[in-house]
């Protein structure tokens, strides 16, 4: 099995059992979607076994975190995260006396925490405390009232944790935010999108492939069509592709002109930003602290959606000529392929 790394860069908190569970889960995604018939999406292992001394090429596909599908005010987009925040980025706002004090963004997928949940309640608490030091979640908060975490099988715990994420106060904004929860922001959706868009098409442009793959791609979003067009361009260029390890969506940077007390700063530079913008967890999490005098493009920071307009994220794809891939990874052999050993 491919030694998938911890997407948060925490080495699974040195817990090998968690690492095994997570890797099994991830391998399942790669295996399922690499077997999509006629899709150029393939196993990650294949890109390490290219013939002719070829090396894979990394392509970063970026997009803005602002949910352009939302027909709502910025305040409502902030408030109704599970309805509107659909660009593989979600955020929590904190206020004091009506003023915004902090915005926490996350791109972490729930599968990571599911792996801890599968192992046990205490392991899950450790993972949550690694994100939010001082967190003291209860079983009821994480799994719902009446759930017996101790007696439940690992899969049951993982599923219940996932199912309860919108009510989990350490995730739903009440006490914190842990991971992506909006219905479209799933790892399965990300894999499905790339696999579907990697089927070479003879009609339409790469840009509108998103509209041709059914529910796999949301054409009105920023992220989906960007990823889809990249995949389609790749396969039209006879490339096979896969999601790079560590899999997921990373926070890239904040755009715009930022000032603190009228002095322009590079908000992305920790040496200049006075701690107002802190990225962590392998760029899967970031916190903007709004002190008096912080402005973006000349305006005071009032909402998280305002920041989301400026927040760039990306997913990284590896690509290589289909002909250089091992035979078991090439387009057309999916259903009969033995897959990676």
């Amino acid at each position: 099995m491919f030694p998938y790394s911890d997407p948060a860069g925490r080495n699974f908190l040195d817990n090998n059992a968690v690492a095994d569970i997570f890797r099994q889960q991830l391998q399942g995604f790669y295996d399922t979607f690499a077997r999509r018939v006629n899709s150029g999406f393939t196993w990650l292992e294949a890109l390490d076994q290219l013939s002719g001394g070829q090396a894979s090429q990394e392509v970063s596909v970026g997009w803005s975190s602002f949910p352009i599908t939302a027909q709502a005010t910025d305040a409502l987009i902030d408030r109704d995260r599970f309805e509107y925040q659909d660009e593989y980025v979600e955020w929590r706002t904190e206020t004091n006396q009506g003023g915004l004090t902090q915005v926490t963004f996350t791109t972490e997928f729930p599968e990571y925490f599911e792996a801890f949940a599968a192992l046990g309640f205490n392991d899950l608490v450790n993972a949550i405390q690694d994100v939010m030091p001082g967190a003291n979640p209860t079983v009821a908060e994480l799994f719902g009232r009446g759930f017996n975490a101790a007696s439940s099988p690992p899969l049951g715990r993982a599923r219940m944790f996932r199912a309860h994420l919108q009510e989990n106060p350490w995730n739903n904004g009440e006490k914190g935010i842990l991971c992506l929860t909006q219905r479209f922001n799933t790892l399965n959706a990300l894999f499905n999108l790339l696999a579907a868009c990697s089927v070479r098409r003879t009609q339409g442009t790469p840009e509108n492939t998103c509209s041709l793959v059914g529910d796999a791609c949301g054409p009105a979003r920023s992220s989906d069509p960007a990823l889809c067009a990249t995949a389609q361009r790749s396969v039209r260029g006879n490339l096979g592709l896969s999601l790079r390890d560590p899999t997921g969506v990373r926070i890239v940077k904040l755009d715009g002109v930022w000032r603190i007390n009228n002095s322009t700063i590079d908000i992305n530079d920790p040496a200049q930003n006075q701690g107002s913008w802190v990225m962590s967890r392998n760029a899967r999490r970031a916190v903007l602290t709004i002190e008096a005098g912080l402005t973006v493009d000349g305006s005071p920071v009032r909402t998280g959606a305002q920041i989301a307009r400026k927040l760039q994220v990306a997913a990284d794809v590896l690509a290589a000529p289909d002909a250089a891939l091992p035979e078991w990874a090439r387009v057309g052999v999916e259903s009969s392929s033995r897959g990676p050993e």
Partner: peptide, 15 residues
């Protein structure tokens, strides 16, 4: 971004 046009013939990294 989001299905806008990519002039890949100008991108040295494109395929």
């Amino acid at each position: 971004v989001g299905g806008s046009f990519v002039a890949d013939y100008l991108d040295g990294n494109s395929s």
